[in-house]
Simulated assay, not measured.
Amino acid sequence: MSPEYAMQGLFSEKSDVFSFGVLILEIVSGRRNSSFYDNEHALSLLGFVWIHWREGSILSLIDPEIYDHSDHNYISRCIHIGLLCVQELALDRPNMAAVISMLISEAAFLPPPSQPAFILRQNMLNSKSPDENQNVLSINRVSITDISGR
């Protein structure tokens, strides 16, 4: 889910680009974004990929089932494009036509990505000790919450 949709309910073609970028990174890494857990650093899949990108160690995040040394440059390019698609600001993301052009043409210039959105996994209850959790939770006997899908 793109940051602008998650935070403000705004949806555009750049929201689709964000989702496509997550999909590219899921395929290349062989890990699902929705079930990715790096408990040591509280990272999301995007944070995990970003750290490996910054450290220049992208080989370690590529799924061994799809890795072929002869395709190393293409896989690295896919990771680069995936990171460009998951930029926090919609204006910083390419449109889908540009993404397709980048995927097809090896000559197309790829700007350096900046830090993507949602790199940390937020989990307030697990990050505090049991005594501190009592201060975070409250008991509300006045209202009833009904959860329903959109």
Rank of each mutant, 00 (worst) to 15 (best):
D131Q: 15
L46I: 03
S15A: 03
S2G: 09
S101D: 12
S138E: 12
A97C: 02
I147T: 09
E40I: 07
N140E: 09
R93P: 07
E88W: 06
S138Y: 10
S15H: 01
S70M: 05
N95W: 07
S105G: 04
R93I: 06
M102L: 12
M96K: 07
K128M: 15
P111N: 07
Y74I: 12
H72S: 09
V22C: 00
E4M: 01
P112M: 10
A117K: 09
A98C: 11
Y74H: 14
N95Q: 02
H80Y: 08
S2E: 01
S34Q: 09
L23N: 06
Q8C: 04
L120K: 15
K128S: 13
Q115D: 03
I58E: 06
G82L: 03
S60D: 15
L45V: 04
N123Y: 08
A42F: 06
M102R: 10
S34K: 09
S105H: 13
I51N: 12
R141V: 10
S19Q: 00
V142F: 10
S29G: 01
D38W: 06
H69F: 00
R121D: 14
P94S: 03
S76H: 08
L110M: 08
L83F: 00
F11A: 12
R93S: 04
I147E: 14
P116A: 04
H41S: 15
G82F: 02
L10R: 07
Y5G: 04
I147W: 09
P94I: 07
M7N: 11
L23G: 06
P64G: 05
S114G: 11
I51Y: 04
S101E: 14
S34H: 05
S127H: 12
G21V: 00
E40D: 14
R141L: 15
M124K: 15
E13S: 09
Y74L: 13
F48R: 10
L46E: 02
D146P: 00
I139M: 09
N39D: 11
F36A: 01
S60T: 12
M96C: 05
S34C: 06
I104H: 08
P130L: 10
R121Y: 09
R31L: 09
F109A: 00
L120V: 11
H52W: 03
P64H: 02
S148I: 09
L61N: 07
S2M: 01
T145C: 12
S2W: 06
S35H: 10
N73G: 02
